[in-house]
Design a protein around this nucleic acid. Sequence first.
DNA 1: CTGAAAGCGCTAACAA
DNA 2: TTGTTAGCGCTTTCAG
Lengths: 345, 345
Amino acid sequence: MAETARRPEHRYGNRPTMKDVAARAGVGLKTVSRVVNGEAGVTPDTERRVQEAIESLGFRRNDSARVLRKGRTASVGLVLEDLADPFYGPLSRAVEEVARAHGALLINGSSAEDPEREQELALALCARRVDGLIVIPAGQDHRYLEPEMKAGVATVFVDRPAGRIDADAVLSDSFGGSRAGVAHLIAHGHRRIGFIGDQPRIHTATERLRGYRAAMEEARLDVEDSWVSLGPTDPERVREAVTAMLSGPEPVTALFAGNNRVTVTAVRALAGREHPVALVGFDDIELADLLGITVIAQDAAALGRTAAERLFRRLDGVEEPPAQVVLKTTLIPRGSGEIPPPPSA
Amino acid sequence: MAETARRPEHRYGNRPTMKDVAARAGVGLKTVSRVVNGEAGVTPDTERRVQEAIESLGFRRNDSARVLRKGRTASVGLVLEDLADPFYGPLSRAVEEVARAHGALLINGSSAEDPEREQELALALCARRVDGLIVIPAGQDHRYLEPEMKAGVATVFVDRPAGRIDADAVLSDSFGGSRAGVAHLIAHGHRRIGFIGDQPRIHTATERLRGYRAAMEEARLDVEDSWVSLGPTDPERVREAVTAMLSGPEPVTALFAGNNRVTVTAVRALAGREHPVALVGFDDIELADLLGITVIAQDAAALGRTAAERLFRRLDGVEEPPAQVVLKTTLIPRGSGEIPPPPSA
DNA sequence: CTGAAAGCGCTAACAA
DNA sequence: TTGTTAGCGCTTTCAG
């Protein structure tokens, strides 16, 4: 039986190794390594022989082995909430671009807003020895990452801060953005404004609610309990919240939507109504311009880029205390936020 | 100097290994391995001692080493065009879910519609020894993957077929979908219909154009050269194409948009016009329902899921000849496609 | 039930 | 310029 055929089945579908190439080219193992990695110190003639052997054998360097030896994987992990959410696509892409510029690959996974799954994913990535980790937290306690960070896994949190540990974070100004949005509605004459947001355990949800309350308070407006609804962002729940706030003797005249999922459903829910209801949403949405939806825009790509750049700066050995970077948001008036309250109100 | 401190710097930020755990627990290396992997044959007492050592040292198994030994990486690669495109988000997420169900992680990268970058990425993933590869081709020649596939990297193409090699592919019915869309416009009275699509080297672009031509021919309608425009899908180019087709003595009365990027720009370009122009777009878009945009919907998530399932079936050792799976598309009438031509036409 | 030894494919260090 | 040796941290094999 031939040498090659005797190899154990588990060997990556029996791919040739540097040893095989060396044998074929009649050179030493290290010479093959030199050629493969473009190191100096190989005669053109030797190099050619090695190259031929590589071609004919279909050799490709096994990076698993390389990684084991070098101690760096040239890959970063990204744990986000849902790759299918239009907010995370551009963010993810931006991280990828930065990673690529640094010669690293991106491994990413969705937590589906489940803290356990977030942890499972993040730790799996650590076990793979990613050089760095970018996390959009689903959970509120990240002490589980402390040993990993101490052991050298650079970690940056995005969109939401880490819970119970001190770590880098890149955030949008949820509080300020939402305060500005609500102030905008107030400036257009509204007094009864509803807030529909994500689950209260999500940092951005409570921050945006805080912004809402701040704007109301600054205008000396009381907030009734029935005007605030936090919870999952599935269409049913949001639709019910909208309906509830618009019913009764004293309905709200305007709505502030806490994120893109809420905005989309709110727009649909409001579409069929007799009297127009003012709306401002957090996050920009594709085609919102055509629908005239006023939004507080945040730059998802900038969020990802900033976080990734910070990560690679850490990987390059820059030592600074952990810091939070907060990116500004922009109010984009497009019509829905400028609808005045009905005269009767 | 202590043992630990003497370790070379490159060792993953000096993380403890099984050897360290073994020393600490006063057991053999293999016993640690058994505990870590939940293998049978360890006394509860020994197990407890090992667990304690693991905790106190903050040990986490190094999967790089494991992979090297086992020959399987439990990861799959996904090469797509642009993670930021709303079409690829759900596709990517679907692949991820299937991978997760099989205990695998997802490494993904964007080719930015550049064939060289596609190849570079795909081969980098092969070097990492991903168990399988899912590729949304940017290029038209995938012979470069042949050695990898022969060497055992299961590969499935999605959205577009592989070029010049025989391989599995999961596609949407671009031809049929676009033929149905154009036939729909014809049924609503249009005779002069424009087609704006992606670059001609992209398979789906030409297939959709073919569907357009087929529908026109079936209705015995001639197609003027100026009614067809293929090219990059950036807003400027598309906007110019729209303007051109709607100018002159005999403008088109309806447009068929070849993909979601084109549709979005076309809708914007048509928004300001005096006379409404009929429009059908390939791909559904968020909020298209509210804007009344008639589309040929394809199921991006199903595309990803189907491809990933096929991939894992191959990884499980199922041997079948490569096949193409074509998923049906759905015409969703919402108004824009049902606008009749102006009486003058 | 437990552990020692070999080796996965590569790179670093050192010889020749 | 080239080759040899010794690991990287783990799993496999096989012997206690």
